[in-house]
Amino acid sequence: MTDQRVAIVTGASRGIGRAVATTLAAAGQAVVVGYAGHEKAANEVVDEITAGGGRAVAVRADVADEREVAALYDTAAEAFGGVDVVVNSAGRMTLSTVADLDLDELDAMHRTNIRGTFVVAREAARRLRPGGAIVTVSTSVVGLQFPTYGGYVASKSAVEGLTLILARELRGRDITVNTVAPGPTATDLFFEGKDEATIERLAKQPPLERLGTPADIANVVAFLAGPAGRWVNGQILRANGGIV
């Protein structure tokens, strides 16, 4: 299939990234499953895609390392002929009040969330073919401003600003650039460190009165990465079930 679209999805071994990878594959795209440390899980995603008749390959890359990210794109070109879609789902979250946040944790979050997004987006800006799509991942907490999310929101606010500027810098390239900002979503990252009462309270916040699922977010990403989303550009789409 020489006209098959090719997607790179980072953070694709689990959670939202995994759902994005399998959803894009189901829509007919070849997928490079990017991962940092969960090799077995990444290979399972590849197996799931290929078992369904799709094409996929797993590639380890630290999103904040420009050499490893360049190699990720090189692999996509060698295996599938190029890159059309990039979804940067890799992320890190540590919750703490501003007063108590360990600065090493802050630096680690910003390295993955800010530098990582920048490195992946920079390579996408250099390599994507016309008709391509870049999707970054933020969080609805940027607008909701929950306590203990200060360091995380600082990093994701940077992601949103970068994304909106990149959309305008790619004028004339026929490449869309958007951010998806999930609300509370049932992933390992979300559940980590939360008790049942907190989870229940967050699940009740949307008018739909449930947590989002990775599939909910993946379907939004697939819309932006597919033909139906071509007229959406330079936007932050808050996929959160209606929390305001």
Rank of each mutant, 00 (worst) to 15 (best):
G150E: 13
A215D: 07
R122Q: 15
L103P: 09
K40H: 15
W231P: 06
L103K: 12
L189S: 07
V31A: 08
G91R: 03
A7C: 09
T148W: 14
W231F: 14
M1T: 11
E44I: 05
G34S: 03
G151A: 09
A154H: 06
E78W: 12
V180P: 08
K156Q: 04
R67T: 15
A108M: 08
E169C: 07
A21V: 08
A70M: 00
G183F: 11
G131K: 11
M1E: 04
A158D: 03
G183N: 07
E209A: 10
K40E: 14
G91F: 02
Y73E: 05
I16P: 02
G28E: 09
E39S: 13
D74N: 11
V232H: 13
A76T: 07
D104F: 08
P182I: 05
E105V: 01
T187Q: 12
E123D: 13
E39G: 07
R238G: 11
Y35G: 09
A154F: 13
R14Y: 08
G15W: 06
L224I: 06
G54E: 13
T97K: 05
A186Y: 10
G17E: 09
G172I: 00
I243D: 00
E196Q: 11
G151T: 03
S138R: 04
A239K: 12
A41N: 12
R5Y: 05
P147Y: 06
A58F: 05
V6T: 10
V244A: 15
A239P: 11
I114H: 00
L128P: 04
A71G: 04
S138D: 09
A125G: 15
T187S: 11
Q29L: 10
N240E: 15
A197E: 07
R127K: 10
A64T: 01
L237R: 07
N88V: 14
Q145S: 13
L128Q: 05
V20F: 01
A215L: 05
A133W: 13
R127S: 08
A64S: 13
G37V: 05
E105K: 14
H38G: 03
I217S: 00
L164W: 01
V85I: 03
K194H: 14
Q235H: 08
L144P: 10
N240A: 12
R210P: 09
Q4G: 04
H38E: 05
E123W: 02
Y149H: 14
G17V: 01
I236A: 11
I175K: 01
F80L: 12
G241Y: 10
P147I: 14
A77E: 15
A21I: 09
G53V: 13
R115S: 03
L72G: 00
I49E: 10
D84H: 15
D74V: 04
A12R: 02
N88D: 10
T112K: 02
A90F: 08
F191I: 13
L237P: 13
L103A: 01
I243H: 05
A124H: 14
H38M: 05
Y35W: 05
I217R: 03
T139H: 02
V20C: 07
S140Q: 13
V59N: 00
A124T: 03
G28F: 04
E160K: 00
I236E: 06
V6N: 04
E105L: 12
F190G: 08
I49F: 06
A108Q: 11
T198K: 03
